[in-house]
Amino acid sequence: MGFKLLSKLLVYLTASIMAIASPLAFSVDSSGEYPTVSEIPVGEVRLYQIADGVWSHIATQSFDGAVYPSNGLIVRDGDELLLIDTAWGAKNTAALLAEIEKQIGLPVTRAVSTHFHDDRVGGVDVLRAAGVATYASPSTRRLAEVEGNEIPTHSLEGLSSSGDAVRFGPVELFYPGAAHSTDNLIVYVPSASVLYGGCAIYELSRTSAGNVADADLAEWPTSIERIQQHYPEAQFVIPGHGLPGGLDLLKHTTNVVKAHTNRSVVE
């Protein structure tokens, strides 16, 4: 069995187990497998329904001669939608809004960016022009300005110390501490036991640490421990890039980060 097929099978099995364990909360999309990078042309966006009122959005972007996937989250909030992270750029984010209108038909009224990198804030200006209120932590807003990236308009308070959590509509926002970046936030959907790890969490097929220019490698494993301790009931975990899975993604990420750190020390 090929690795790609095995990865998709694991996603399907995880979703099936969740649907059985929580039949009222989960209505997993039966329309197909989780979209992969090879299936999404740059400039297009796919939506994948995880649970009743919960979707991931998947886009792709060219970077350094390669094409990478990027995940975000959409959560229903009454007759409105909360968006977590842009679709990595203005063109993708405009396509995301169009796809949401086509498939869901509810307005996106608020959006949260989970850290300051372009795959999370690139497209904020498109959201703002569409009347979406954009939010991020003060740290993310400051770092985005320093980096020359787009800056969300509103500040999220109460997320300055490791372990801080605040309720934001249908989700809980959690600051686990520094990891992929010093400002990275985690998003949890309690009604569906869905954990969105953003770039602080890796997919299972990833074996290298990737972009760690703004990471705190020493603190990252401790931050992941905080996530595990705060959300032990999480059933569906979405990484910032690639295929979702279960809580095993947290341990896998820790292993990859520690291996990278150990290699760096040896070198």
Results as ranks from 00 to 15, higher is better:
264 S>P: 15
117 H>D: 00
39 E>G: 09
259 A>E: 09
175 Y>F: 10
128 R>G: 08
26 F>V: 08
108 V>I: 05
139 S>A: 13
73 L>R: 02
21 A>K: 13
100 I>Y: 03
24 L>M: 14
250 L>Y: 15
143 L>V: 08
107 P>H: 11
186 I>D: 00
39 E>Y: 11
250 L>H: 02
250 L>I: 08
73 L>N: 01
131 G>T: 14
201 I>R: 01
64 D>R: 10
108 V>H: 02
73 L>P: 03
164 D>V: 08
26 F>T: 05
125 D>G: 09
138 P>F: 09
9 L>V: 10
150 E>F: 05
106 L>I: 11
136 A>M: 04
151 I>F: 15
259 A>D: 07
50 I>L: 09
152 P>H: 04
28 V>H: 04
202 Y>P: 03
91 K>L: 14
191 S>K: 09
135 Y>W: 07
258 K>F: 05
126 V>N: 06
212 V>M: 11
61 Q>D: 05
9 L>N: 08
169 G>S: 04
88 W>L: 00
141 R>L: 13
196 Y>Q: 02
46 R>D: 15
174 F>I: 04
264 S>Q: 07
28 V>A: 10
82 L>N: 10
37 V>M: 09
103 Q>P: 04
42 V>F: 15
86 T>L: 01
211 N>A: 10
10 L>C: 12
82 L>C: 14
181 S>D: 01
139 S>Y: 11
96 L>N: 00
228 Q>T: 14
220 W>P: 00
125 D>M: 12
156 L>P: 04
235 Q>W: 05
118 D>T: 11
142 R>N: 13
153 T>Q: 15
160 S>D: 13
9 L>P: 10
76 R>Y: 11
105 G>A: 15
151 I>Q: 04
157 E>S: 11
241 H>M: 00
52 D>V: 11
183 D>R: 00
59 A>Y: 04
140 T>V: 03
60 T>N: 10
141 R>K: 14
98 A>R: 08
197 G>S: 02
130 A>Y: 13
68 Y>N: 14
42 V>S: 15
153 T>N: 05
238 I>P: 02
150 E>L: 05
199 C>G: 02
252 H>M: 03
195 L>I: 07
60 T>G: 13
163 G>L: 08
129 A>R: 10
62 S>A: 12
195 L>N: 00
164 D>P: 09
233 E>S: 13
206 R>L: 08
226 R>C: 03
4 K>H: 06
166 V>Y: 13
141 R>W: 04
179 A>S: 05
170 P>I: 15
132 V>H: 00
146 V>N: 07
57 H>N: 03
80 E>P: 04
116 F>C: 03
105 G>V: 14
80 E>N: 15
169 G>N: 03
188 Y>Q: 01
149 N>L: 13
69 P>C: 06
218 A>S: 09
76 R>P: 03
160 S>K: 13
237 V>N: 02
1 M>H: 03
32 G>V: 09
110 R>A: 15
83 L>Q: 04
117 H>V: 00
176 P>W: 00
94 A>W: 12
253 T>E: 01
128 R>P: 03
235 Q>I: 07
133 A>H: 15
258 K>E: 14
1 M>D: 03
258 K>H: 09
185 L>Y: 02
114 T>W: 02
94 A>V: 11
145 E>K: 12
191 S>M: 10
218 A>T: 12
175 Y>V: 04
166 V>H: 05
232 P>F: 04
163 G>K: 12
91 K>E: 14
40 I>N: 15
241 H>C: 00
120 R>E: 04
209 A>S: 11
231 Y>H: 04
43 G>E: 10
20 I>N: 09
24 L>K: 07
242 G>M: 00
137 S>M: 09
88 W>E: 00
112 V>Y: 03
13 L>R: 11
186 I>R: 01
237 V>M: 04
244 P>C: 03
26 F>P: 06
52 D>E: 08
202 Y>F: 05
208 S>V: 11
157 E>F: 07
85 D>E: 09
228 Q>C: 05
127 L>T: 01
115 H>Q: 01
173 L>G: 01
37 V>S: 09
248 D>V: 08
177 G>Q: 01
25 A>P: 11
152 P>Q: 02
123 G>V: 02
4 K>Q: 07
49 Q>K: 12
230 H>F: 15
54 V>P: 02
138 P>W: 15
95 A>S: 10
131 G>L: 11
18 M>Y: 09
221 P>D: 13
254 T>V: 13
258 K>M: 13
114 T>L: 00
33 E>R: 12
10 L>V: 08
258 K>N: 06
188 Y>A: 05
189 V>R: 00
1 M>T: 04
139 S>W: 09
201 I>F: 15
156 L>Q: 04
7 S>D: 08
228 Q>S: 15
199 C>D: 03
9 L>A: 07
230 H>C: 05
88 W>G: 00
59 A>G: 11
215 A>D: 05
151 I>E: 06
237 V>P: 00
59 A>H: 14
92 N>P: 06
23 P>H: 12
15 A>K: 11
126 V>R: 09
166 V>S: 08
255 N>I: 08
110 R>F: 04
23 P>Y: 09
26 F>I: 06
167 R>G: 06
260 H>I: 14
213 A>Y: 14
135 Y>Q: 01
244 P>Q: 06
253 T>H: 00
227 I>F: 03
18 M>V: 07
256 V>N: 04
192 A>K: 07
106 L>A: 13
7 S>P: 09
43 G>N: 15
173 L>S: 00
178 A>P: 13
208 S>I: 13
37 V>Q: 13
191 S>G: 08
264 S>Y: 05
255 N>L: 13
62 S>L: 11
247 L>V: 08
161 S>T: 08
255 N>T: 08
234 A>P: 15
48 Y>F: 12
188 Y>F: 12
159 L>T: 05
92 N>W: 01
213 A>P: 10
143 L>M: 11
100 I>M: 14
214 D>M: 06
105 G>W: 07
69 P>I: 11
30 S>M: 15
129 A>C: 04
207 T>A: 10
29 D>A: 08
190 P>G: 06
251 K>Q: 15
178 A>N: 15
79 D>N: 06
143 L>C: 07
218 A>W: 10
103 Q>Y: 10
175 Y>I: 01
265 V>L: 09
15 A>C: 08
141 R>E: 04
144 A>P: 04
152 P>A: 14
227 I>R: 02
82 L>H: 04
25 A>M: 13
138 P>C: 12
102 K>T: 11
67 V>L: 12
5 L>E: 08
188 Y>P: 01
95 A>P: 02
97 L>W: 04
72 G>T: 02
62 S>P: 06
238 I>K: 01
133 A>L: 14
217 L>V: 12
223 S>P: 04
88 W>P: 00
163 G>D: 09
90 A>I: 13
77 D>I: 04
167 R>D: 07
99 E>W: 11
210 G>D: 08
95 A>C: 11
73 L>S: 02
267 E>K: 10
195 L>M: 11
156 L>G: 02
181 S>T: 09
115 H>V: 00
98 A>F: 05
144 A>H: 04
260 H>C: 08
60 T>K: 07
106 L>Q: 08
220 W>C: 03
15 A>G: 07
180 H>E: 00
60 T>P: 05
96 L>W: 00
103 Q>L: 15
222 T>C: 05
85 D>Y: 00
104 I>T: 08
236 F>M: 10
75 V>K: 01
11 V>D: 06
166 V>C: 05
186 I>F: 06
105 G>T: 12
169 G>D: 04
237 V>Y: 05
233 E>K: 12
10 L>K: 06
185 L>E: 01
39 E>L: 08
9 L>D: 06
